[in-house]
Amino acid sequence: MNDNTDRMTGAPTRRDYMKYGGTVVGGGLLAGCSDLVGQREPDSSGDGSYSVTMAPMGEVSFDSPPESIFTRLTHHAGMAFALGRGDDVNAMHAPDYYDQLWNQFTERLPGVTLDWTGLYSSWDPDKGRLYELDSDIHLADPASVNALDSWSMTDIEEVRETVSPWFGNKFSDRHDEPPTEWADHYEYYTLWELFEKVAAAFREESRYDALETIHADLLKTIEENLPPERERPTAVLAGMSDIESMYVYTLDAPGFLTAHVRPLGPIGALGDDISSGDTIDMEGLLEADPDVLFSLGGMHPQTDMPGIRSALRNHAVGRELSAVESGRVYAQGARYQGPILNLFQLEMTAKQLYPEIFGEWPTYTEGPYPEIPEDERLFDRQAVADIIAGDR
């Protein structure tokens, strides 16, 4: 590793200044932080160092903004991308798959490019590989890594102390329980609350503020125009790679996995006996009989949306679905969305649910995010592109 020589001679390295602060529990890295949640910390000394507090890590100190970035899940990688740091990501889950999916959306951001192909696939990361990557920050939740059978608390602490800090939060995805060791120190955040903290870790508060203004305006547009609940369609979000056994996800569950659907208030069609992530067959879907059927991952280049629609129409049970009869089977993107995908998916889902209010959503078959007429867009693409590029 490239900083071993410095450590052996006793000379301080850049990494030595990137340590956890706060009250350490039981000699580990868990820090009490509930009284600091939501705060932006100023420089903590005159030497330019600063700290940011986020559960479950507590207070994390930095001597300067991190450069190389390890990530595990794409909501964190998407935050780095939104801050103009997408090319500094060196690892993520299924990088080639998500590179293709993210680039379906970046096509509509003038001048913005992204390339995650060939990165280390880090769903269950190897500790030795983390030493090789030698990242300035592990933008990943240490509690979720600790939940893997291959990682102990000792491993988590070792990487934090000898490579760089952990800084991430995963269980806010649907407010799941973290491992027992972390439960007393966990907080749940919205997607944009998480993004604010990540932005602070990179000293990119101004970029966050600019993007959050666009997000807030988009939510205001949605909220001001939503029809009464009695006039809203029922819907189901499903993974439809196998229509005989589909993963389905509830729409009103807490957490950032539904951050692009929940603000639009559709009526969940699934019964109370179905939990998010359960599988159902076609008969079960017909029992729910949604007005709108969302196909998760349908915008990925490898997904055959015309084939999915055809298979439903030709299925003895599927053809009876209200969403199939009315042609309201729509492609969706990703649930582990960063802030940029969240903007696109809020616009997309608004049009899919309420075309008479927010404008028609084109019948998507393949290719990038459809080109929406400028006067029917719910947010400014050029403004987002300029923020990512650092031009605003």
Score class of each variant (00 low, 15 high):
R108V: 09
P370V: 04
I137Y: 07
D115I: 09
Y336C: 02
H185G: 01
S295Y: 05
E231L: 14
F167Y: 09
E181L: 13
D173F: 15
G268L: 04
L257S: 11
S295E: 12
T365D: 15
V60N: 04
D134A: 15
Q100I: 05
T113Y: 10
D149E: 12
I388K: 06
Y354T: 07
D141K: 08
L30G: 03
S121Q: 15
S68Q: 14
Y20S: 05
Y369C: 04
L130G: 04
A200K: 03
S164P: 00
Y330I: 07
Y20E: 06
V384C: 02
S295L: 06
D386T: 08
T363L: 00
L219H: 05
Y369E: 02
K19A: 09
V261N: 04
Y120P: 03
N342M: 14
Y247V: 01
S322F: 06
I137S: 11
D47F: 12
L346R: 04
G84A: 08
Y208D: 01
F195E: 01
R392W: 08
V198G: 06
A80Y: 04
I388N: 07
L114T: 02
V317K: 02
P12L: 12
G318S: 07
G22M: 08
S34E: 01
T349M: 12
D149R: 11
S61E: 11
P178A: 10
V52S: 05
Y186T: 07
E223L: 10
E325L: 13
L211V: 09
K351T: 03
G26S: 13
R262L: 12
S44G: 13
G297C: 09
